[in-house]
Design a protein around this nucleic acid. Structure first.
Lengths: 137, 137
DNA sequence: ACATATTATCATATTAATATGATAAACACT
DNA sequence: AGTGTTTATCATATTAATATGATAATATGT
């Protein structure tokens, strides 16, 4: 339902959000902590940095940190660089003919069913999810 | 959000549900009408037949028809042969540690967000969606 | 300056989803 | 029986997601 890329991104961001210290966290450290493929996670972290979700620093003592406060950062913003699911709901049947403007009957049903999930991604902030000890594993 | 395989399956079943005549519809006919890859759709139709959603007949005058009435057939049943999304909700973060039995805080949020969609698939019947002229295209 | 540690980037491998092509099996009609 | 039409099945191709490996660029500390 959620791609692995998005899962990795969310877990990494949650991990960084729980990091209280001011110094950035190394990619390898996150990958080891979460048991994720290191190089693949690197690419994800880089994409998040380009999207303005994270800040990165190179060299010794380098790493990643949140660019914005967990209270302002939504799950949708973390997922946005990887998939456009949140922004534009597609027709359940994959037909580009029907949209919110020219909806079919099915479309209306589908909108009602999928809206709660979309709103969840938009409204839930990273801050709402931290505080659990094991979210970083 | 929904795989193409599931989209094709739903469209094909909706198409068959609108077919009032008693004689089965050929796979090629459905593929042409919906403009879908013929061989790929064949495999999908075959899978639906094995799952008991459709009935198939070979030879001349052969084809596919619904095995059950559109009023009894849910979207979830049509999608079930291809993905297990509907039955078991996985953790948003892809961790197998947390389940409905041993939920994390996130899990509870996620359940609330994803339940409406799952219920939609389970409760919506094929009959609820027919009646639109263009659903077969 | 130099060595080291880290992110940034490029190249490639693996796997799963999607799609195509070809052949076998079943049925209907003559 | 034989011919043609259809589904059933197998084999392979293409594409996208996921993962790995190697190198370049940048910053730090000596």
């Amino acid at each position: 339902m959620i791609s692995k890329t998005n899962q990795y991104a969310l877990r990494a961001v949650l991990c960084l959000a729980q990091e209280t210290g001011g110094r950035p966290v190394r990619a390898g450290q996150i990958a080891a902590g979460l048991d994720l493929p290191a190089n693949y996670l690197s690419k994800i972290l880089h994409a998040l940095a380009r999207a303005g979700v994270l800040e990165s620093e190179r060299g010794p003592n380098g790493g990643f940190r949140l660019a914005r406060s967990p209270e302002e950062l939504s799950l949708a913003e973390v997922m946005a660089p990887f998939e456009a699911i949140v922004e534009q709901r597609s027709c359940l049947l994959g037909r580009d003919q029907c949209s919110d403007e020219a909806p079919c009957r099915l479309h209306e049903h589908w909108k009602l069913a999928s809206d709660p999930m979309i709103e969840f991604f938009k409204n839930t902030k990273i801050a709402d999810l931290i505080g659990q000890t094991d979210l970083c594993t």
